[in-house]
Design a protein around this nucleic acid. Structure first.
Lengths: 170, 170
DNA sequence: TCATATTAGTTACATTTGCAACTATATTCA
DNA sequence: TGAATATAGTTGCAAATGTAACTAATATGA
C-alpha cells in the first residue's frame, strides 16, 4: 500500500526470487543434499558422486562407467575420476568383460565396497523417513508424482533449447 | 520373481537411487537450473550467483552484501566475489551509507544493471510458465506447499546434526 | 578506556570442476 | 581392406569453489 518501499511499479519489479520455482527447488535440494551428505562424507569420506556410484552399483552390479553415467545423470568426467578414486581405495573392482575391450564393468568389492554400501543405505533410508516424517502416504505420492512431471517438463524444455548434448552435474 | 537378477535378498539391496527422494530432488533441480541458466549465461554472461544477486537487488535495492547472503542462502565468499565482478562490470553500485562504515549498500546501476534485470526477468517468468504449463493452479499450490514443508523439515534435521554453521551453495 | 569479542567483507591457497582435446578400441561402408 | 566415424574412457589446463585466515570497523564490558 504505502509508497515507501523501494520497488518500482513495473511488472518485472515484482519478480521475487523467493517465489521463483527454480530457485525454491534449488534451495530445497541443496538443504536436503547437505543433510544426507553427512552420512557418507563424515564417516566414509565419499563425495556425492562417489556415493551415487556406489549406490547404483550396489543395486545393479556390473554396469559400465557409461551406463552409470546414463542412470545417474552425472558428467562422464566426474564419474571417470570418482571411479578411479574408488578403485584405488578398493571399494570397486573393474573387469574387461566381453569382446569389446573398451567397456569395463564395475562392481562393489565384497570387502569394503559392499560393506560401505550396506552401512550407508539404512542411514540414508532413515534420513529420508525423518525428512518425510510428517507427510502422509498420499502426500508423498503426490510429491513424487509432481516432481516427476516437473522433471519431464524440464527435460522437454531443455532439449528444445539445446538439441544436442546432455549431462548434468552433482 | 526370477532369481536371475544380481541383487541380493537383503533389505539394503533394494535400495534404489532412482526412487530416493534427495536424489530425485537433486536431478529435477539440476535439470531446471540448467534450463534457466541459458537465459542469463548465454546472453548476459552471468553465473547463477550473479543472477541471484541481481534478482534480489532488483526487487530490494539497497541491501548489503550480508543481507543478500541471508536472503539467498548463498555463501558469503561467493557473494563477495560475484559482487566484485558485478561492480567491475558496472551492473552494480555500492555506497557506504550510515554511520557504520563496514556496511555498504548495493543496488543495480540504472544503466546496465537494471537493464539486465529487466531483460532477464520476463524470460525467467516465461521459462517458469512453460515449465508449469500443464500444471493447474491447485497442483502448483500443492507443489509449492510440499516443497516448503520439505524445506522446513530438512532445515530442522540439518540443524539437529550440525548445530552451528549454515550457508549452502549454488 | 582499553582489551576482548563481533560483524562485514576480502584474500590466499589448495581442491574441485568443466571443457576440450586426447587415446584406444570398435564399427561402417565404399 | 582401409579411411572415416563413433564410442568408452582419460587427461590437461584454466576457471570456479570452499575453507580458513585475514583486515577493518564496531560493540562490549571490566
Amino acid at each position: 500500500m504505502s509508497e515507501n518501499n523501494k520497488t518500482t511499479g513495473q511488472a518485472f519489479a515484482h519478480f521475487d526470487l523467493e517465489h521463483f520455482l527454480p530457485y525454491r527447488l534449488s534451495v530445497v535440494s541443496n538443504t536436503v543434499s547437505q543433510g544426507i551428505a553427512h552420512i557418507y562424507q563424515q564417516d566414509h569420506d565419499l563425495t556425492v558422486i562417489e556415493w551415487r556410484i556406489i549406490a547404483v552399483l550396489g543395486r545393479y552390479p556390473g554396469l559400465t562407467a557409461s551406463q552409470v553415467v546414463e542412470r545417474t545423470v552425472m558428467d562422464k568426467v566426474s564419474v571417470s575420476r570418482a571411479v578411479k578414486r574408488l578403485l584405488e581405495r578398493g571399494l570397486l573392482q573393474r573387469r574387461t568383460h566381453g569382446s569389446d575391450r573398451r567397456c569395463r564393468t564395475l562392481e562393489l568389492t565384497n570387502s569394503s565396497g559392499r560393506k560401505t554400501f550396506e552401512s550407508i543405505v539404512p542411514r540414508a533410508r532413515k534420513y529420508e523417513q525423518a525428512l518425510l516424517a510428517d507427510f502422509d502416504a498420499l502426500e508423498i505420492q503426490t510429491l513424487v508424482s509432481l516432481l516427476s512431471r516437473l522433471q519431464n517438463s524440464a527435460v522437454r524444455l531443455d532439449s528444445a533449447i539445446e538439441p544436442e548434448n546432455t549431462a548434468l552435474e552433482s
